[in-house]
């Protein structure tokens, strides 16, 4: 009887040792990680102020001033990617021209991401908050998303900042103005930057 018991215990212990051996024989190396790309994160945003006027619905552009922001929120030279100390000042002239603001989101590999936002236009909207009211006016040109829209100058001789904030998860059945001061209570933020602007009187513009 005693012998049988010992035999059983021995079997149990053998099973345990086998299990332990099975476990320790497993690899110590983790599975090689898969290289994931952050599809959601733009690496660079370019804001183009295109000066011009309309012929019908066609914009006749003259000059373009571009402000570029990189993924850590800092301003860079749009041509050389060199880091800038501060936000470049964009000068806007009052007159018969408007400034079409086109905003372009680029991935790290240079792909344009705007389509991803416009595909979900129903929940995305850009807001633009000037630090001084009554100086600028803005009209959405793309179903209230704000990737394309026109600024016009109402007052000259002003230096102001312009907060540009792209929000998602917005209920757009409610009409919200481009400069709604409660913008940061709608949905959540995709992108934010603060631009520096200066408005000046109209200069001579030779139209060919």
């Amino acid at each position: 009887m005693k012998k049988r018991t010992s035999k059983r215990i021995l079997s149990a212990l053998t099973a345990f040792i086998l299990l332990s051996a099975l476990m320790t024989s497993c690899s110590k190396d983790p599975v090689a990680p898969n290289e994931e790309h952050n599809h959601d994160d733009p690496a660079k945003v370019a804001l183009l102020f295109i000066k011009g006027h309309y012929h019908g619905t066609q914009l006749h552009a003259h000059d373009t001033a571009t402000v570029a922001v990189r993924m850590d929120g800092r301003f860079i030279d749009p041509e050389t990617n060199a880091l800038l100390d501060k936000a470049p000042v964009v000068t806007l002239e009052q007159g018969s021209d408007i400034y079409q603001l086109q905003i372009k989101f680029y991935a790290a590999d240079g792909d344009l991401l705007n389509g991803e936002f416009l595909q979900e236009a129903a929940i995305h909207q850009f807001f633009f908050l000037p630090s001084v009211t009554g100086v600028l006016n803005y009209v959405y040109k793309d179903d209230r998303v704000g990737f394309t829209g026109d600024f016009s100058v109402l007052q000259t001789g002003k230096e102001l900042s312009l907060t540009a904030s792209l929000r998602h998860g917005i209920n757009k059945t409610v009409q919200r103005e481009w400069n709604d001061v409660k913008y940061n209570t709608y949905g959540s933020e995709d992108f934010k930057t603060v631009l520096q602007l200066k408005t000046v009187a109209a200069g001579a513009h030779d139209h060919e």
Partner: peptide, 12 residues
């Protein structure tokens, strides 16, 4: 499509 918060690992 998102960089993982934690790495792959083996733990004994």
């Amino acid at each position: 499509g998102v960089v993982p918060l934690i790495p792959n690992y083996k733990y004994m």
